[in-house]
Design a binder for these strands. Structure first.
Ligand SMILES: [Mn+2]
Ligand SMILES: [Mn+2]
Ligand SMILES: [Mn+2]
Ligand SMILES: [Mn+2]
Lengths: 219, 219
DNA sequence: AAACATAATTAGGTAAGCCTAATTATGTAT
DNA sequence: ATACATAATTAGGCTTACCTAATTATGTTT
């Protein structure tokens, strides 16, 4: 069995690995988990013994295949619960993460498969993140940050690269939603801000901090 | 905050108190929680300090008002989740308890109120148990065991007094469901078994062990 | 009242997960 | 090559929630 703490470590390692490449340092883990580095060192040594990760002293850790599968199953559960909370219980996309952090640890394969079915086998969660299948496989993802688009490009907003409530609430307030069509009308040389037309209607100026975190696919 | 262990102790104390009256003994608690009596003594002393229960050494414990409210909130969550699992996810009534044991500890008032609303404010769970409201109040319950009915009485099956999978599966196999109408056609003096007519159709002989655990209301 | 059985408590210990403070390793700047 | 800064580890401790074995309390027989 995998404990709550182990599940959280595995998920954190997976996410850091995804973002900053291969090897995950003790300090990076300590940072994301808000746990003292000394405690992390302790814990990862035990996880290495259980073959959930490989650990090279003073270098860092990486997930074993088994560890990766567990991490993906937690992420799958987290994202399915988020879909349920938004689609069925009426929560907003900035209200579901904390609850899903708890629900993701409920253990029952039957439950999660029934939930998946109940939701209609969604491919993405309320933030546009891909939901791995029961085997830990993702569908292909061709999205890129809006910041990498050029003038004249027309794209669809499909996800966020930043999940803070501040950012999610900014988007809600600005009336920008997943699925919206964005046309890059201009890019300001000076501050790298984007002028976009949303759904062929409103025009908006988006700062470089914003466009960096809007994930889009070409239309 | 209340820990997972505390929540489980409170729920167990509540249930024993409900069944066997006022004071709950260390051994009764140890039995239901499957925890060593010495550990229970230890733990209840700490709970008494936190005013979750009152504790008289070598006598036993009873819930404080605060403890009772927490116990009821856990029971409320447990039963609402069971309703959801059966009504929305397609589980059978003998498949939901273990999953609800986990879900009942998820912390979010918002979540449980939204769930309640989503389910249409159910008054009973899949086993006919009453669901307390957010303030810990129950609707009145006038049910009694079928064993206390007399010949000729016509009643409705509304709940079970025994929650084991064995019993639930026996009822399913016998095609006896919550809401069924039962007419007591005869009572066998020798073994206290009941002959009943179900929904004005099939006739069945039910042993005294069975009728004792079928809760019914007069029609 | 003494003996016995059973229930409850106390004493002492363990594992999981965390902490702080001290030490050591690693990489960069001088 | 040495010094310095930062990262990582080690050492020693703490709390929670459990355990076993030993002791004491309680209630029932004889
Ligand atoms: Mn989330
Ligand atoms: Mn998400
Ligand atoms: Mn149950
Ligand atoms: Mn139930």
């Amino acid at each position: 069995m995998t404990s709550l703490a182990e599940e959280n470590y595995l998920k954190a390692i997976y996410k850091i690995q995804e973002k900053h490449g291969d090897v995950v340092t003790t300090s990076a883990l300590a940072e994301t988990l808000a746990i003292n580095a000394a405690s992390v060192t302790d814990f990862i040594k035990k996880m290495a013994v259980k073959k959930l990760i490989s650990y090279e002293k003073s270098k860092g850790v990486r997930l074993s295949e088994q560890g990766r599968q567990i991490a993906l199953s937690i992420i799958r559960k987290h994202r399915l619960w988020e879909v349920w909370l938004v689609n069925n219980l009426g929560f907003k996309w900035d209200e579901v993460h904390e609850i899903a952090e708890q629900l993701e640890h409920v253990i029952s394969d039957e439950l999660i498969e029934q939930l998946d079915k109940h939701l209609g086998y969604p491919k993405t969660d309320p933030h546009g993140d891909l939901i791995p299948d029961a085997k830990g496989r993702f569908i292909k993802n061709t999205s890129k940050p809006l910041s990498e688009c050029s003038k004249g490009e027309k794209v669809k907003f499909t996800g966020v690269a930043e999940h803070s409530n501040a950012f999610l609430q900014y988007l809600t307030k600005s009336n920008i939603k997943l699925g919206d069509e964005l046309l890059v009308e201009g890019i300001e040389e000076f501050d790298k801000s984007f002028q976009v037309k949303i759904n062929n209607k409103e025009r908006k100026i988006l700062s470089k901090e914003v466009v960096k975190n809007l994930l889009v696919i070409a239309l």
